[in-house]
């Protein structure tokens, strides 16, 4: 099922006047995520940008049940909510959605997430990956890309980001997907599909961040798309172990056309300013190798 952007439901559980930054990718995506679940859901959210978006007591900006939890605990909280709903006979009433940032998922939250995945707990975990600790002032995370300057990597991060979706795949959970906030219909379709699956469903969502990455808020969607066109971000899903590219990444692979060089993408953001040519070359090599693997898997090769 592929939904066209014009066919997305005209409903919003995200209220006007929320506290996200101008151009924040989370706001675009959250509308589709909550719409895909038709509001029949409970979210659990750790300390993150999303906490800020949700509003400050006694005013809330999102019209679905929302349970704030401690930073490392998102997946365990979702496990507890799911267990509590089962124990009280309400598990059919709503989908449990855990939603955390890249640091909350891949760094401090990975232990609880790995435990929940191994137990195949019944919830959707969506990581909005804005590639650093944006809520605390742009410190590097394990998912910050190589070359990015953050407030703890002043000369640019030296390491490539860790591949959390692949780690999640290794847990053998029923559904793993990679999407981008710049593709609302892709987000909507993947959350809709995940909704119909039982067990732990993991969705990784690249989420452009104007303030942390250093670009004009009007360019969020443009940069999100450019990231996909370079192959830095790849749209795909792994359903019960079967991998396939989706949307723009599938078209890109099928077209056989060259991908946009990563240097073009890196040049759009101040966080990559001053990156040395050899560092850019290293990122290009890393992306090329990954892309070749995704294309091969899409064609049926085992990873």
């Amino acid at each position: 099922m592929t939904t066209r952007i014009l066919d997305l439901p005209d409903v919003s559980y995200v209220l006007p006047g929320n506290r996200s930054c101008a151009g924040c990718g989370i706001g675009i995506a959250l509308r589709q995520i909550t719409a895909a679940l038709e509001g029949r859901m409970v979210m659990t959210v750790p300390a993150s940008c999303l906490t800020v978006l949700g509003g400050m007591f006694p005013i809330a900006s999102v019209n679905v049940p929302w349970v704030n939890v401690a930073f490392p605990s998102t997946a365990a909280a979702a496990s507890g909510i799911a267990a509590g709903l089962r124990a009280t006979g309400r598990e059919g009433e709503m989908t449990v959605l855990a939603m955390a940032g890249d640091g909350g998922t891949g760094d401090i939250g990975i232990q609880a997430l790995s435990g929940a995945a191994e137990r195949n707990e019944d919830f959707i975990y969506l990581c909005y990956d804005n590639e650093a600790y944006m809520n605390t002032g742009t410190q590097r995370s394990g998912l910050t890309p190589a070359g990015a300057r953050t407030t703890t990597t002043w000369a640019g991060k030296r390491e490539n980001p860790k591949d959390i979706p692949r780690i999640m795949e290794a847990h053998g959970i029923p559904y793993v997907a990679s999407t981008s906030a710049a593709f609302p219909a892709d987000v909507y379709d993947k959350v809709s599909k995940a909704r119909g699956i039982t067990g732990l469903r993991y969705i990784h969502m690249n989420t452009p961040c104007p303030s942390g990455w250093g670009f004009d808020p009007k360019d969020t969607v443009r940069l999100g798309k450019l990231a996909v066109d370079t192959g830095l971000v790849v749209l795909y899903e792994v359903e019960r172990g079967v991998f396939r590219l989706t949307g723009r990444s599938a078209s890109l692979a099928k077209s056989g056309k060259p991908r946009v060089p990563v240097s073009e993408y890196l040049a759009t953001q101040t966080r990559f300013r001053g990156m040395k040519p050899e560092a850019i070359e290293s990122v290009q090599t890393w992306v090329d190798e990954r892309w070749a693997r995704y294309v091969a898997r899409d064609a049926g090769a085992c990873d």
């Binding site: 349970v67 365990a76 909280a77 267990a83 709903l85 435990g115």
Partner: peptide, 23 residues
């Protein structure tokens, strides 16, 4: 429901989540 968690941090978190929904 018996949730065999991967740490004490998660043990208390599961109780927090479950208690929040009324268990």
């Amino acid at each position: 429901e018996f949730v065999a968690v991967e740490s004490e941090h998660s043990a208390m978190t599961v109780c927090i989540g479950a208690s929040t929904v009324g268990a």
